[in-house]
């Protein structure tokens, strides 16, 4: 059982984020490619959510009163698998099959995988389901909270704003949006301007904090600042894709990273070195 009732220190969470990055690098290294840049970028947020916010028993995945984390960006699945492996839900043997033919851990997340709450990949599907879950849990008198990760690219989907409108209109205290703004999308740097992100969420009736999404102290402080506020809450996380591995960060801010086989050892060393 993962004890997440105790809030962890910035130092502890930073260490966990590093372990998540290490797991992601190993999964991608075996394949030579993947959505590793995005995964590395949100590792800090995932560590903070899963190890300091979520009330969640990894041995009771069907607990109806569990807090839920919804990954709306299905292609970030590598990051979620790293979390689930770190929690002991997935084994190392399983994560080694990431994105292989016939694997239960596909490159885009399916809810058949233990610990994965929704099938995502068609973007703009996460927040609305989070709204429905938060409504349904409130109706049942459950204390559970729903955290929805989504990306800056998904802010271009109209469905995201339909859902954002509903969340505040329904006064959903138990809903959080964790918006990963990494500045890239499939065709390169943001092809459609979606700023000012924080102002948009605020205008839709959400309580908002904006942080450097690769600064654990800022992330932890944002959760603390918003916790207990009425209505839905959003944290805008400005992240750097590939954070933790300078060579990946430098690689043309890539949406889909391909790395030559010989390079992985060097990149893994970079990750350890960078962590210090």
């Amino acid at each position: 059982m993962t004890d997440t009732t105790t809030r962890r220190s910035v130092a502890e969470l930073t260490e966990i984020a590093h372990r998540l990055r290490r797991r992601m690098m190993r999964m991608a290294a075996d394949k030579g490619e993947g959505y590793i840049a995005q995964g590395l970028g949100i590792a800090d947020m995932l560590a903070a959510v899963y190890w300091s916010e979520l009330r969640f028993d990894a041995e009771r995945l069907d607990d109806p009163d569990r807090d839920r984390f919804l990954l709306s960006t299905g292609h970030y699945s590598i990051a979620l698998y790293a979390v689930l492996a770190e929690l002991g839900v997935l084994t190392d043997e399983e994560t080694a099959t990431y994105a292989l033919n016939g694997s239960d851990l596909p490159m885009s997340a399916f809810d058949e995988t233990p610990g994965v709450e929704i099938t995502s990949g068609s973007l703009g599907h996460g927040l609305g389901q989070g709204v429905g879950m938060a409504l349904g849990l409130r109706l049942k008198g459950s204390p559970a909270t729903v955290y929805v990760e989504l990306s800056d690219g998904e802010l271009q989907e109209g469905s995201t704003w339909e859902s954002a409108m509903a969340a505040s209109s329904f006064g959903l205290d138990g809903l959080w949006a964790l918006v990963d703004c990494n500045g890239i999308q499939a065709d390169g740097p943001m092809v459609m301007d979606i700023e000012s992100v924080a102002a948009k969420w605020s205008a839709f009736g959400w309580s908002v904090e904006e942080v450097n999404g690769n600064d654990m102290a800022e992330i932890v402080a944002a959760f603390a600042a918003l916790r207990g506020k009425p209505g839905p809450k959003a944290i805008i996380l400005r992240t750097t894709p590939g954070w933790g591995v300078p060579t990946i960060v430098a690689r043309d801010r890539a949406h889909f990273v391909r790395v030559h086989e010989d390079e992985w050892t060097k990149l893994l060393a970079e990750l350890e070195e960078n962590h210090g």
Binding site: P64, E117, I118, G124, H125, L127, G128, Q129, G130, V131, G132, M133, A134, L135, G136, L137, L139, K140, S142, G158, S159, E162, S163, M165, A166
Partner: peptide, 15 residues
Amino acid sequence: QDAIMVAAGLAKVGH
């Protein structure tokens, strides 16, 4: 779109 997503979310917590 939201109507369907909200319904899916409600269903996924037991409704």
